[in-house]
Amino acid sequence: MIPRVRRIAAVCALGAALAACGSADPAGSARPAPAESRASASPSASRPPVLAPGPGGLTPVFEHGPRTLGKTVALTFDADMTADQGPRAAAGEHFDNPDLIGALRQLKVPATIFMTGRWADEYPIEARSLGNDPQFEVANHSYSHHAFTADCYGLPTIAADKMRADVERAYASLHQAGVPHALPYFRFPGGCYDQRALRALSGLGVTAVQWDVVSGDAFATDAGAVTRQVLDGVKPGSVVIMHCTRSAAPTTERVVRAVVPALRGRGYRFVKVSDLIGESAGHR
């Protein structure tokens, strides 16, 4: 078991207990190295920058932006939900976190939300609000939140021949919920992927987005410890993974309220993942 504050993307897993964002306003094996900073910068807002495919069209992987282009950092939040959590939501368990989203809006912090299709089905009003707010960008976190590799934090595993359809189904759910422009970025459940998974998604045009700073907010009860971990880990171009889930990540709002002024005091500027990938386009 990985220590609570250091656990790498217990993040999105441990029995798939994690789940999602809300709106305050109407480990895979044999992982290839992340793709180099080969991005295709889009001239239009409707086509966000993506990394170029790897050899043989393999889905590219992005972990962080350039370290030498100024103090930028992207906060990302996983909106996890699985089909079996529907009854728990109906029974009153909160898989959203409107106070966190409200804090981000109050602090004027742009952020990238990786949303499962199942969560968008459950919370279409919140999904639509986030997807239509220019402060946020919404990306794909699978439909089912099943793992794309074996032995991924206890998550059920999706078959290789169903991986592509799961991602496409998530995009359909986001669109149906009212997210007009879900980005061509995909985050593997649990962060677990291998060459088979990358190959299965080849041709979809997505960039797989990982991270270089694990907040440790999943299941954490000590906001101070999570805050220190984020502040100790951030470097120029960092991508921080957090969660916006009241039931499984209850400290995250407090963490954000502490981390944001501290990093701004150090001269950091908050950006979206698309901004970091766009910066990578000109840094070859």
Rank of each mutant, 00 (worst) to 15 (best):
T72R: 14
A89M: 11
P124A: 06
H64C: 09
H175I: 11
T245Y: 00
C152P: 04
R269N: 08
K272I: 01
T68M: 02
G191T: 07
F219V: 04
L75T: 01
H141R: 06
S274A: 13
G216Y: 01
D222W: 11
P189E: 10
M115H: 03
Y171Q: 09
Q229I: 00
A10V: 01
I8T: 13
G131Q: 02
A17W: 05
R128A: 02
L276W: 04
V255N: 03
A200R: 00
K272A: 02
I101Y: 03
F219A: 11
A200K: 01
F148R: 07
S144W: 00
W119R: 14
R264Y: 00
T221M: 15
P43A: 13
A19N: 14
H146I: 05
A27G: 11
P26Y: 14
A24W: 06
S23H: 01
D84M: 08
N97F: 14
V234W: 07
E36D: 10
P156S: 06
G191N: 13
A182P: 15
G154C: 11
D232M: 01
C21E: 12
A9P: 02
I241E: 13
D232F: 01
R118C: 11
G224Y: 00
G205I: 14
G131R: 03
V61A: 09
E253V: 12
Q176H: 10
S280K: 00
D151P: 00
L198F: 07
A90C: 00
R257F: 01
H64N: 05
C244G: 15
A19H: 12
L263A: 07
G57L: 05
G205N: 13
S280P: 05
A258E: 07
L69N: 08
I241S: 13
T252V: 02
P3S: 05
G278A: 15
D166M: 09
R6G: 00
F114A: 07
H94Y: 13
L198H: 08
V240P: 07
V109C: 08
V167H: 03
A45T: 12
S44M: 13
F95Y: 15
L100Q: 02
S142N: 11
R264H: 02
L104D: 07
A281Y: 00
H243C: 10
P250Q: 06
L58T: 14
Y143P: 04
G203V: 06
A16N: 13
A89K: 08
V273G: 02
Q195I: 10
F77K: 01
V259F: 04
S238R: 08
V167I: 10
A223C: 09
L276T: 06
A197S: 15
P49W: 09
A52L: 15
V240E: 09
G265D: 06
A139K: 03
V206T: 10
P124F: 03
L100D: 03
H64L: 05
